[in-house]
């Protein structure tokens, strides 16, 4: 580089004026706090996390082998049906996964029903499906009454207690067409679906509560934003003081 240019060179890392030096130091400090606060915390989350199963997954694991072999007893079938319902209550599942879970649930209910009542069960579910297909509004009294009746009738089959939210999902997830057989497709794909929805990355940072929030959620959704405003405010105050000290006039 020509000597003529030496006096006119700007570089963030090699400032040539007192103001530029002071500004560089402020920027480096604030940028470091900014970066560590955002990315450092997420890395910490990653380091500390452990795959943690929901109780429904542990239940599923304990009964799946027998269900797959068709040797599950009554209690195991009940637990199996309940674990499928636990995932069906989640919103984000795809249509294909939903169909698999509905097959698992419907089959378990069918298996838990005495042989003599199975045809009646299918007829009941078909009747409800017909009403459901015909209505235009879910507050239709006939529909509501049929749904509540089916829930009331079948919840004891899975031993769902009175405040269990799965009671509400049960009648909506039954499919008369997939009650008789636990399909090969379900047998293949169900374990992966259960693992996907029932195992979560948890750690002390996610399990600790702060102001009602899971701590990590509070940190990211609330605290980081406060920090950003704070960093901006600090920067402006420091630069204003710097300009005042150096008598900078714009």
């Amino acid at each position: 580089m020509s000597d003529d240019y030496n006096g006119y060179h700007i570089s963030f890392f090699r400032p040539t004026t007192p103001r530029a030096k002071a500004n560089r130091n402020i920027v480096i400090w604030l940028a470091s706090i900014w970066a560590v606060s955002i990315f450092g915390f997420q890395i910490l989350l990653l380091v500390l996390e452990k795959p943690t199963p929901e109780p429904a997954y542990l239940t599923f694991q304990s009964v799946w082998e027998d269900v797959e072999d068709n040797s599950a007893d009554k209690v195991e079938l009940q637990e199996f049906g309940k674990s499928a319902l636990s995932v069906l209550g989640k919103i984000a599942i795809s249509d294909k996964e939903k169909a698999t879970l509905e097959n698992a649930l419907s089959w378990s209910i069918y298996q838990l029903t005495p042989d003599s009542l199975r045809s009646a069960l299918i007829a009941r579910v078909q009747g409800f499906e017909k009403i459901k297909a015909e209505i235009v509004n879910i507050s239709n009294p006939d529909y509501v009454s049929a749904r509540n009746a089916l829930s009331k009738e079948l919840s004891p089959v899975l031993v769902l207690v009175s405040n269990d939210v799965r009671r509400n999902i049960l009648p909506l997830a039954l499919r008369s067409s997939s009650m008789k057989v636990l399909t090969d497709d379900t047998k293949v794909s169900l374990p992966a679906i259960m693992e996907k929805y029932l195992i979560h990355n948890q750690s002390v940072l996610t399990d600790t509560r702060f102001l009602g929030f899971p701590f990590h959620y509070f940190y990211t959704a609330v605290f980081l934003l406060i920090l950003f405003v704070g960093l901006c405010w600090v920067y402006c105050v420091l630069v204003d003081r710097l300009d005042e000290r150096l008598k900078t006039v714009e």
């Binding site: 989640k90 509400n168 948890q202």
Partner: peptide
């Protein structure tokens, strides 16, 4: 008219959840 209720859904808040 549906209840304000939900099944346990840790996938909503847990980081980079497989769900």
């Amino acid at each position: 008219g549906q209840d304000f209720a939900v099944v346990p859904s840790p996938e909503y808040a847990m980081p980079w959840d497989s769900a």
